[in-house]
Design a protein around this nucleic acid. Structure first.
Length: 582
RNA sequence: GCCCCCGUAGCUCAGGGGAUAGAGCAGACGCCUUCUAAGCGUCUGGCCGCAGGUUCGAAUCCUGCCGGGGGCGCCA
């Protein structure tokens, strides 16, 4: 640890030992070293020591990082925590990245990063470019994020947008964390709701042909079904018409689903989401025999049982509160059976080591069942992460609008994107933790669009771009800027903020809490705006980014470039654009 | 009846064992001869739903209660 004498080769020391990606573990090592040195010197009793417990103080006055180790080990060591903190600080090794620690009551050891370390992060950021803040957490393992997967029985509504924003951001973060990620949409093109959809479509189709029929009682009353029927009739005429009273033709059903899935795909594309694969539920029952193989595994486990004319998965033997039907008495498999087969395919066929299913909270009752089934297939329970998001309560003019495909009124995702824009909608969805119910007042969102926080973040990016643009017009570029010149408090504060993205990515990738992204984005934007306006406040033209001092200008342009990279990265992870000008 | 989520500033929400509880919007007052004022600064605003408990330390963990939402189908 103190192997590198001060004043010699700090660059080598910093680069070889610590950067933004491993500074925490670096600090842990230093604290552990300090403790063992103190024990060796007899100043600390040789007792069991908890982990170094490196935290980030809320108040920057308490440093960049802090250890609460003294508070945690006080009881075991039978010494006051403040005293332990002083001893640990005393034996803390010299290090290029960290200043001498400070001790604060009741027993914190506070660490401040050196200017040299912070300055080096600017170079690091520029060197990494669009890979800035990438982690190796996933070790290149295959991960899948399956999200939205709404029944193709109608257009996507606002609630689906929440799932889309969350799933897409999570996929991006997992990719940044080192997983090989695939985005997937599970198309429910089999099952009873699909049949009802077909019956509704055929009823509308017949109505257009002048027949007096009504849609099924449990059918889909939305106007879009009339539009869909009309589209098909305009294209193919009456060719799907059968004798009055006959059942709806399967070809019409299939065509309707195909068109609906295509429409959903276009909606999501407008929202900025694209999938690697659209997976057909029906294909589970095709030539590949996925369904049969999955059931065979359960049968081998002795977990299938014929009873009351149906086939049951004996999940109660595996800790569930009841058994569940996989094949109905009429011979048709349930949705549950499909999902078991689907996850058999995800894990055992395609070999994903991490699968994240993003579901609306109305699927809550299905979570435990599916996890149990997946475990019965021989898959590690932790490999399947099911993230539930609470449904969106939509308001228009303060009045609650119910979101239901079967009810009359729905607000579509297309309408939302048209009214408030994809970037704003995504930011809004991501800001809330998935588990929290959220109100979305459309009128308010539109009216306040110029004051929405996402503009604040994008505006920061545009200002950064603008500074680089202005400098370039004067022949000034970041090239050759010496980051060692960056020493103003607001310059270093900006670097400190940029560094946090590594923490954010790790947190989101391990806790599946995407709301940290927009919150961090706002804080980074704040750090930049404060940096930028500090020059104005000071009233000193020498403090601007672009000044008469060319060396200083180039150094600050390097910081501006790095900050732009960091901001663009977090905007990208959220699936938002990073405009060069606004 | 049982299970899950939520209750934090006027509003919408972060924080989910550590230091004086935060942001945006709303409200008050300042700041453009200046690389974008879609910005910055200062101020106002809180029994962190209630009551117990665990802990050196609880908005955070546990128990109970109150309030809001969701789930518990041979629907998906």
């Amino acid at each position: 640890m103190g192997r590198f004498p001060r004043g010699r080769g700090w660059r080598y020391a910093v680069h070889s030992m610590a950067d933004a990606r491993n500074i925490r573990s670096h600090l842990e090592t230093l604290v552990t070293t300090a403790v063992s040195r103190a024990v060796a010197s007899g100043e600390l009793p040789d007792v069991a020591v908890p982990t170094a417990a490196i935290e980030r103080p809320k108040d920057p006055a308490n440093g960049d990082f802090a250890s609460t180790l003294p508070l945690r080990m006080a009881r075991g060591a039978m010494r006051p925590p403040l005293e332990l903190a002083k001893v640990i600080a005393k034996h803390f090794p010299e290090d290029a990245a960290v200043e001498r620690p400070e001790v604060a009551p009741p027993g914190f050891v506070n660490f401040r990063l050196t200017s040299a370390f912070l300055q080096a992060q600017v170079e690091q950021t520029i060197a990494l470019g669009e890979n800035f803040a990438d982690l190796a957490l996933g070790e290149g393992k295959k991960a899948q994020v399956e999200f939205v997967s709404a029944n193709p029985t109608g257009p996507l509504h606002v609630g689906n947008g929440r799932g889309a924003a969350i799933g897409d951001a999570l996929a991006a973060v997992l990719a940044a964390a080192g997983y090989e990620v695939e985005r997937e949409y599970y198309v429910n093109d089999a099952g009873t709701q699909t049949d009802t959809f077909g019956d509704t479509l055929y009823a509308r189709y017949q109505q257009l042909a002048g027949r007096e029929v009504s849609i099924p009682a449990d059918g889909y009353p939305g106007e879009y079904m009339v539009d869909l029927a009309r589209t098909i009739r305009d294209r193919d005429g009456d060719r799907y018409l059968r004798e009055p009273g006959e059942a709806s033709p399967p070809e019409l059903n299939a065509l309707g689903l195909e068109l609906m899935v295509a429409q959903i795909g276009e909606t999501l594309a407008r929202f900025g989401v694209s999938y690697d694969r659209w997976y057909s539920e029906k294909s589970l029952y095709g030539a590949e025999g996925t369904y049969e193989q999955a059931m065979e595994v359960l049968r081998e486990q002795g977990q299938l049982m014929q009873r009351e004319g149906a086939l049951w998965f004996t999940s109660s033997e595996l800790g569930e509160n009841k058994d569940n039907v996989v094949v109905r008495s009429d011979g048709r498999p349930t949705y549950y059976a499909s999902d078991i087969a689907y996850h058999y395919d995800k894990f055992l066929r395609r070999g994903f080591s991490l699968v994240a299913d993003i579901w609306g909270a109305d699927h809550h009752g299905h979570v435990s069942r599916l996890k149990t089934a997946v475990r019965a297939l021989g898959v590690d329970a932790n490999a399947l992460q099911i993230l539930l998001y609470q449904l969106v309560t939509l308001k228009r003019g303060g009045e609650v609008v119910r979101l239901s495909k079967r009810g009359g009124e729905i607000i579509t995702l297309d309408e939302l994107v048209e009214e408030v824009g994809a970037d704003a909608a995504r930011f809004f969805f991501l800001m809330r933790s998935p588990g929290a119910q959220m109100d979305f007042d459309l009128d308010l969102a539109v009216r306040q669009s110029n004051e929405n926080p996402f503009y604040y973040v994008q505006y920061a990016h545009a200002r950064l771009a603008s500074i680089l643009q202005r400098a370039a017009e004067q022949g000034l570029t970041p090239d050759g800027g010496k980051v060692g010149l960056l020493s103003q408090p607001h310059e270093l504060a900006l670097i400190r903020e940029m560094m946090r993205l590594v923490d954010i990515i790790e947190t989101v990738a391990t806790t599946f809490e995407p709301q940290h992204l927009p919150h961090f984005a706002m804080e980074l934007a704040t750090a930049f705006h404060a940096f930028n306006d500090a020059f104005k406040q000071a009233g000193d033209p020498g403090l601007k980014v672009i000044t008469g001092d060319e060396d200083m200008s180039r150094a600050r342009l390097r910081l501006v470039l790095a900050a732009k990279i960091a901001l663009a990265r977090v905007l990208g992870l959220m699936g938002m654009s990073a405009p060069e000008r606004m």
